[in-house]
Design a protein around this nucleic acid. Structure first.
Length: 331
DNA sequence: TACACGTGGGG
DNA sequence: TCCCCAAGTGT
């Protein structure tokens, strides 16, 4: 393991952050812990540009955990829109309910308490503690892992699975802090978001902008001649998968005014031509989202068996519920 | 541990 | 066009 000039790297990356960081609303001083928490849920596996408008609307509508907890889950799923992974909306609502009922409506500030909430894992607990509560903890996300892999380990990409060595490295790179060291504590707290931002804007997965990097002189990957990745990332299949079918069904449910007949979701075309919601193949309503959603579902090549499997998994996950009137979003 | 889980923009 | 991948979590 090389011995990088840590204080210099700390200073260079933090200085870079001060002049290059994006002005994101959840980073402002006015943003409270709830605003940070909502952003962290939305940002899981989702780019900032897609999160921004949804986050704005969400915080405006539900400024506190209690406000969200008082709503029906269906409203959260609808407001989640097309962010993807709609189970996150379920878990955010569930977490807000726990906070309202067991934390006096205040987002807890320790990693252990945060970790106990639905939808919050190791990364999100550390991120909320660090960003919202100024706890100088070790935060490890995909951006930070990639920066560390290149800067220190000299590899193009981090390992496919996060491991103990990466966590130890992240801990070693964190500026020293402590009760008697307020400056170090502030430095350590800002370090996490600075490295994360560097990974997001400069040290990107594809086509990294090394010419804009503040620590290119210290980079082990550059020194090694920018070697190729030592493995090939596994693709994420989509076409023809259950996920595709679930997504299409969720789009229908999000845009439906009420329950949808189970047989319609399972793809019986004739039944989809009647009812209160927009119908596929109805030219007068082509522009409506519900129409688009139906068309999307019916366009799939998924057979009856796959549709049943997808719908069953939606019901099992709690993203949909069954009643005598049909399938609807959860209440 | 490996896999399932949405969506859409950029290279 | 096609493929990659983006502030992960839960099982």
């Amino acid at each position: 393991m090389p011995h990088p000039d840590l204080p210099r790297i700390h200073r260079e990356i933090n200085d870079w952050y001060l002049s290059h960081a994006r002005d994101l609303p959840w980073r402002r001083e006015s943003a409270g812990a709830w605003a940070v928490m909502v952003s962290e849920f939305m940002l899981q596996q989702t780019p900032v540009v897609r999160v921004l408008p949804v986050w704005e609307a969400w915080i405006e509508r539900w400024p506190t955990p209690a406000a969200l907890a008082a709503e029906q889950v269906a409203e959260a799923v609808k407001a989640w829109g097309r962010l993807g992974y709609p189970r996150r909306a379920l878990r955010l609502h569930a977490a807000a309910t726990v906070i309202a009922n067991e934390h006096g409506g205040q987002v807890p500030g320790t990693e252990a308490e945060l970790l106990a909430l639905p939808g919050i894992g190791t990364y999100t607990a550390a991120a909320i503690a660090c960003f919202a509560f100024k706890v100088p903890t070790v935060v490890v996300d995909t951006n930070i892992r990639r920066v560390h892999a290149r800067l220190v380990s000299g590899r193009a990409l981090p390992e496919q699975n996060q491991n103990a060595a990466e966590l130890a490295l992240a801990a070693r790179l964190l500026p020293e802090s402590g009760p008697g060291n307020p400056e170090g504590t502030a430095l350590a707290n800002g370090w996490n978001i600075a490295v994360m931002e560097l990974g997001a804007l400069v040290c990107t997965a594809r086509s990294p902008r090394c010419e804009d990097c503040p620590v290119i002189e210290s980079c082990a990957w550059i020194a090694a001649g920018r070697p190729e990745p030592h493995y090939k990332p596994k693709g994420q299949p989509w076409h023809g998968t259950d996920r595709q079918v679930r997504g299409a069904m969720m789009a229908v449910l999000r845009h439906s005014a009420g329950p949808v007949d189970r047989s319609e979701l399972l793809g019986v075309p004739d039944l989809a031509l009647e009812g209160q919601d927009a119908r596929p193949l109805n030219p007068a309503r082509e522009a409506e989202p519900i129409h688009q959603a139906w068309v999307g579902l019916h366009a799939l090549e998924a057979g009856a068996e796959q549709r049943e499997r997808a719908l069953d998994s939606l019901l099992a996950d709690g993203l949909a519920q069954h009643s005598a009137a049909g399938i609807s979003l959860p209440h």
